[in-house]
């Protein structure tokens, strides 16, 4: 084996705590859940080998189909909306200069400091069809708002609305990217007679495309793994669990129910692995597509 340089060895020593954590708390449980996904396991008795029965069961389970449907619809609505809004906020932030800039940045980020569980409870009140602020606001315009929290046709829309509360990190990432767009490029374009929209399309957007790509991937993954807020709102206690049905059944919520409510650990592990594979595939596709659309500054020097 090749001898390591002292610095490298020290680097490993410093990384060691993290590596131990990774193996013990991430890789270990992941391998365990892969094994469990081929078993029948109720947490109390010992696991019994079940072959691919858990995976076969998923194919037939109508609730899995419903949960996937809800999750996909949510992701398709949330990701574009969240990024468009966050980008708009970042553009506004980028125009604010001077002392106010710091204050605004903090204010824009503040919602992200709210714990997800609190956001869930808060929006249950805000969205309430009978007494919520959202419908009171709509009533000002003579619109009778829908029953966001109880009408199965509107529950998912309400959740999307709530999800737009937590734009802080996406906004900050895009804002940082905007700050890195060289001013001279915009100025050169302006001198060439480009209008604001043209400058945004031809200069700003390509320059921040790598950051955009990053937030698309991150938002997609977190959308597919949506859990905390939805669980708090619609599954948090026994009364809630019997009151809203499947309209808010997200994939991870169903996984959690199978694991900890019905004690089907094997089945839940299988669900988890399918989700992992799906996310891996989606991310792979995004990377492939992204390679064609994203501009990386480093390429210029390489090429």
């Amino acid at each position: 084996m090749r001898r390591l340089r002292p610095e490298t060895r020290w680097a490993y020593v410093f990384v060691l705590p993290w590596l131990i954590g990774l193996v013990l708390f991430q890789a270990g449980p992941m391998v365990a859940s892969l094994v469990l996904s081929f078993t029948d396991y109720d947490l109390i008795g010992s696991p019994e080998f079940a072959g691919t029965a858990n995976y076969a069961r998923m194919m037939e389970d109508p609730k899995v189909a419903r949960a996937i449907g809800n999750t996909v619809v949510y992701t398709l609505l949330h990701v574009p909306l969240a990024i468009a809004l966050a980008l708009a906020l970042a553009l506004v932030l980028n125009r604010v200069t001077g002392r106010a800039a710091g204050a605004f940045r903090t204010i824009f980020y503040l919602p992200s400091m709210t714990p997800y569980v609190a956001v869930g409870v808060l929006f249950l009140f805000l969205l309430n069809g009978q007494a919520g602020v959202v419908n009171q606001f709509l009533a000002l315009f003579g619109v009778e708002g829908p029953q966001w929290t109880t009408d199965p046709d509107w529950i998912l829309m309400g959740i999307v609305l709530m999800s737009l509360w937590n734009l802080g990190s996406t906004t900050i990432i895009l804002f940082a990217a905007l700050r890195n767009v060289p001013r001279e490029l915009s100025e050169a374009a302006m001198i060439d007679g480009a209008g604001p929209w043209q400058r945004f399309r031809a200069v700003t957007l390509p320059m921040i495309s790598s950051a955009l790509f990053f937030v698309v991937i991150i938002n997609t993954i977190t959308s597919l793994q949506m859990f905390d807020q939805v669980y708090t709102m619609f599954f948090g206690n026994q009364t809630a669990q019997q009151s809203y049905g499947d309209a808010a059944l997200f994939y991870v919520v169903y996984l959690f129910q199978q694991a900890f409510q019905f004690l089907r650990m094997g089945y839940a592990s299988a669900l988890a692995w399918v989700l992992f594979l799906v996310i891996a595939i989606i991310t792979l596709v995004q990377v492939k597509v992204g390679n064609r659309l994203v501009y990386y500054e480093a390429e210029e020097h390489a090429g």
Partner: peptide, 11 residues
């Protein structure tokens, strides 16, 4: 009485 909502993390 139904108590405060649980979250996965709290659990």
């Amino acid at each position: 009485r139904t108590g405060p909502a649980r979250s996965r993390r709290a659990g």
